[in-house]
Design a protein around this nucleic acid. Structure first.
Lengths: 344, 344
DNA sequence: CTGAAAGCGCTTACAG
DNA sequence: CTGAAAGCGCTTACAG
C-alpha cells in the first residue's frame, strides 16, 4: 500500500491527521483504532495501525491531555529519599508505570503536611491520570484536594482499619503486627528489658511503637523508660548515638528494638566500638531489612518489608483504576517476614 | 475593583480568558503580563496579576505545552537508584527545578545504552524544556536524538576533555584526579602493594581505575595483578566478597582502594569478621563518602564527591539555558575532597 | 505597547 | 460502526 507521506503541519511532526489521510479514514476513526477502542472495523484498525507504523506516528501527550483532560502522568508523593525504603518503592512503581506508558512525577514531602499539600496542588495542575501517596497522615485540605480531583488514588505502605475504608485503595502491611512479631521474638529469646528506639517519629514509626508497647504490656514488661524517641532524621549515626545513650543510662536494658535498620546498623557499629558484645550483653533488632543488614557484625535480626512488591502492586492497582477496571481487593496486605539473624 | 466571576468554560476551570475579561484586556495581553514578558504597560500588568490572584488562576501546562511546543518538564536520565550517589543528585535537581516551576521526569537506564535510548525517545515525546543526562557514554543514535531535539542538555558527573566540548554543558569533577589523589595518599602512608577493587565497571569507575593506574605506574608500583575488577553491581556484600578474595589470594597486598564506598564498607565488615586489622595489616579506602562511612570501624578514608552541589548547579545551569541566558562556564568542575579517616 | 486571528494535535459529544 | 463539528486553553506570528 502506498501511504501519502505529505506532512500537513508546519512543525514537521507526524500527526493523527496524517495517519488518517494515509489510511483513508477520518481522524476520529484513526484515533479510536490506535487507542484500541472497540467498535471499530478490524479491517480499518489494521490499515490505520500499518499507516501509523509506516509514518512513525506517535501521539502528542500534550494535545491528548488538553483534549481529554487527563495526562499520562502519575503523581507520586514520597516522604523522603534518604530512606532507601522509599527509593525501592519508587523504582518499582516507575518500572511498572513506564511499561504501561505512564510517566512518574515524583514529589518529596519531607514528612511535612504543608509541603505535601503544596506539592499536590502543583501536581494536580498537570491533571495526572493517577495519584500515589504515602500513608494516611495528611491535613484535611489535602484530603479534600484528592477527593475533589476525582483522580484515582492508591495509598502506600500502611493498612487501614477495616472501618471507614470506603473508596480507599491501599497496598501495604501492618507495621503494628510487624513490630509485635519482633517484640515477641525478643521476649522468647529471654530478654526482659526490651527498649524501643526510634527516630523521625513519622506515623508508621508510631505504629511500630504501638506494636511494641502492646506486646510488652501484655507480657507485663512495659516501662515508659524503655521508650527512646527522637524526632531527628533516621540515620546510621543517629542509631549509634542512641545506643551509646541507652547503654550508659540504662545498663539493665538487655535488648533494643530499633524502628529502622539504619539506626540498628549504627548501634551494631557503636557496640563494636565500645566493646559491648551483641547479642550476649545486649540484643539488637531492626526493621525493614535494608541493604547491608545481612553483612553487619553480627548480622542483624530484622523485619523484612515487601517494598518492591508494594511498588509493583500499587502501580498495577492504580493502572486498573485508571482504566476503570474493577479492583477485587481495594486494600492489599502484603505482609512482612521476621528475619532472625545473629544480633538477637 | 470588581472582577467578573463568570466562568466561561464547561470544565469550571478558571482560564486565561476569564482573567482577561476580569482585567479588561485581551487574552494575549493577559498572557504576556502573567509570563512577565516585557513590553506590557505596568498598569495593565498589575491589573492582570490582581485579577489572576483573585480568581485563583493557574495556567494549564498541557495547553501551554501544546501551543508553545515546550512542556514544563525536565527529563533526567540516571543510571541506577541503588547507588545513593544518584539519589542525592536527583533530590538536589528536583528541589531546584521544582522551585522554578519545572517537573522532573526521571528515567533509570540501568547502565544500559539501549535502555537509555528507549527512555529518551519516550521522554522526548513530552517535549521537555530541558534534559539532564549522566556522563558521556551513550550510543550514537542517542547522541543524535539529543542534538536533533534542540532541547538544552546538561551532562552530569564527569568532566570533558578540553578538546571537542563545543556546545556541551556539564557539571562534575575529575574521577581520574580524585582517584589519583587517593592513590597518592596511600603511597604516602607507606603502602607498596596497593590493589584497586571495582564493581559495575561503568565509565566513571574506569576513569578511577585509570587514575590509580597512572599514579602507580609513575611510582613504579603498578602490577596488573593488583586489579580486581568485577562487572556485577556494587554493594556492601560484593565488597566483602572481594576483600576475602584478595586477602586470601594476594597476602602481600597492603592496601585496597575501592571504587565506591559501599564496597569499602563491606570490606571493613569482612575484615572485622576475619580478624584482619585495618589499617595495620591492610589499609582500606573508598570513594564518594556515602552514608555510614564515617561510622564504620575503623572510620573509612574516602574521596568526598559533591553530588548535592552537582545536582543544584546542573539544574541552575539548565534553567539558564532554557531561558536562553548566557552560561559563563559551560563545563563546571566542582572538585572533590580527600577525607582521611582511620582506615588508612 | 496591544490585539484579532489562527493554530498547536488531539478527543468529547453528538449525529447518523 | 463512522464522521463532521467543536473545543480543550493556551501561544505564535502577524498586524497595527
Amino acid at each position: 500500500m502506498t501511504a501519502q507521506l505529505t506532512k500537513s503541519r508546519a512543525t514537521g511532526r507526524v500527526t493523527l491527521a496524517d495517519v488518517a489521510k494515509a489510511s483513508q479514514v477520518s481522524p476520529m476513526t484513526a484515533s479510536r483504532a490506535l487507542r484500541g477502542e472497540r467498535a471499530v472495523d478490524p479491517v480499518l484498525v489494521a490499515r490505520v495501525r500499518d499507516a501509523a507504523d509506516l509514518l512513525g506516528y506517535v501521539p502528542d501527550p500534550a494535545a491528548r491531555a488538553l483534549a481529554s483532560r487527563h495526562s499520562s502522568h502519575v503523581a507520586m508523593l514520597l516522604p523522603m529519599l534518604s530512606n532507601t525504603l522509599f527509593v525501592d518503592v519508587l523504582e518499582a512503581v516507575q518500572n511498572t508505570l513506564q511499561a504501561a506508558g505512564f510517566q512518574t512525577l515524583m514529589g518529596v514531602t519531607h514528612y511535612d503536611c504543608d509541603e505535601e499539600e503544596q506539592l499536590l496542588r502543583e501536581q494536580l495542575l498537570h491533571r495526572p491520570a493517577g495519584l500515589i501517596v504515602t500513608g494516611y497522615a495528611r491535613n484535611e485540605a489535602t484530603r479534600q484536594l484528592i477527593a475533589k480531583s476525582g483522580v484515582p488514588c492508591v495509598h502506600l505502605m500502611e493498612l487501614l482499619d477495616s472501618n471507614g475504608n470506603d473508596g480507599i485503595y491501599s497496598v501495604g502491611f501492618s507495621h503494628e503486627q510487624g513490630s509485635a512479631a519482633m517484640t515477641q521474638h525478643l521476649i522468647q529469646q529471654g530478654n526482659r528489658r526490651i527498649a524501643f528506639a526510634a527516630a523521625q517519629l513519622d506515623p508508621r514509626t508510631m505504629q511500630r511503637l504501638e506494636g511494641w508497647r502492646q506486646t510488652l504490656k501484655t507480657a507485663n514488661m512495659y516501662d515508659p523508660k524503655l521508650e527512646c524517641l527522637d524526632a531527628s532524621p533516621s540515620s546510621i549515626a543517629q542509631g549509634g548515638k542512641m545506643f551509646a545513650q541507652i547503654s550508659e543510662q540504662q545498663p539493665d536494658v538487655d535488648a533494643i528494638f530499633y524502628c529502622n535498620d539504619d539506626l540498628a546498623q549504627g548501634a551494631l557499629l557503636t557496640a563494636l566500638r565500645l566493646g559491648i558484645r551483641v547479642p550476649e550483653q545486649i540484643a539488637i533488632a531492626g526493621f525493614n531489612d535494608l541493604n547491608g543488614s545481612d553483612q553487619m557484625l553480627p548480622t542483624l535480626t530484622t523485619v523484612r518489608t515487601p517494598r518492591t512488591q508494594i511498588g509493583t502492586a500499587s502501580a498495577e492497582m492504580l493502572l486498573a483504576l485508571i482504566k476503570g477496571q474493577p479492583v477485587a481487593t481495594p486494600c492489599v496486605d502484603l505482609g512482612f517476614e521476621l528475619i532472625v539473624r545473629n544480633s538477637t
